[in-house]
């Protein structure tokens, strides 16, 4: 049985690298990632209520709202943050489609788009359903949708 009742050093696999960090039992993954020890501030705190998606990261390649996940739950899983994408096709697509303005929501959308591209083919309905998990307050969703679609389509072709 795993238990965590006081702060403890754990090893997390983040962007394919083992990272040691001290966590509290009631610490969300968003908090751990953005803390001084890891400094991965790409995942953004927005609502911290599961609504906006700005905090989205991938756990085993599945988009996950890191404000709704305790860090201790993902010890044995692979965590990917926007810092781990490193010029992934989805990032290039966001640039070429001008799919952002202020950029606050962008890392969350990138993570959903990247996860979708890893899944291979996705029809328009599925793509929209995944993207509905995130909210953007500045730009038009059309550019975001186009950017994701270009990557999903190019994966398929």
């Amino acid at each position: 049985m795993r238990s965590l009742t006081r702060p403890e050093e754990v090893t997390l696999t983040i962007n394919n690298e083992p990272r040691e960090v001290i966590i509290y039992p009631g610490e969300t993954l968003l908090y751990t990632l953005r803390g001084d020890a890891l400094g991965l501030t790409g995942a953004k705190p927005g609502c911290e209520n599961g609504d906006c998606g700005a905090c989205t990261v991938l756990i085993d390649n599945i988009p996950t709202k890191s404000c709704l996940m305790l860090t201790v739950e993902v010890e044995d899983h692979s965590i990917t943050t926007v810092e781990g994408l490193k010029h992934a096709p989805i990032q290039e697509a966001f640039l070429s489609q001008s799919a952002f303005q202020c950029g606050y929501c962008t890392s969350g959308f990138l993570m959903v788009g990247h996860a979708l591209s890893l899944q291979g083919a996705a029809d328009q309905g599925r793509l929209v359903e995944w993207l509905r998990s995130n909210i953007c307050r500045c730009t038009s969703y059309q550019e975001i949708c186009d950017a994701v679609q270009s990557v999903v389509r190019s994966e398929v072709e």
């Binding site: 039992p25 610490e27 201790v72």
Partner: peptide, 17 residues
């Protein structure tokens, strides 16, 4: 947002839980 004041347990069996 600071860590929540929660203790965490992940039992492996029904009886443990």
């Amino acid at each position: 947002m600071a860590p929540f004041n929660l203790l965490y347990y992940r039992p492996d069996t029904v009886d443990q839980a």
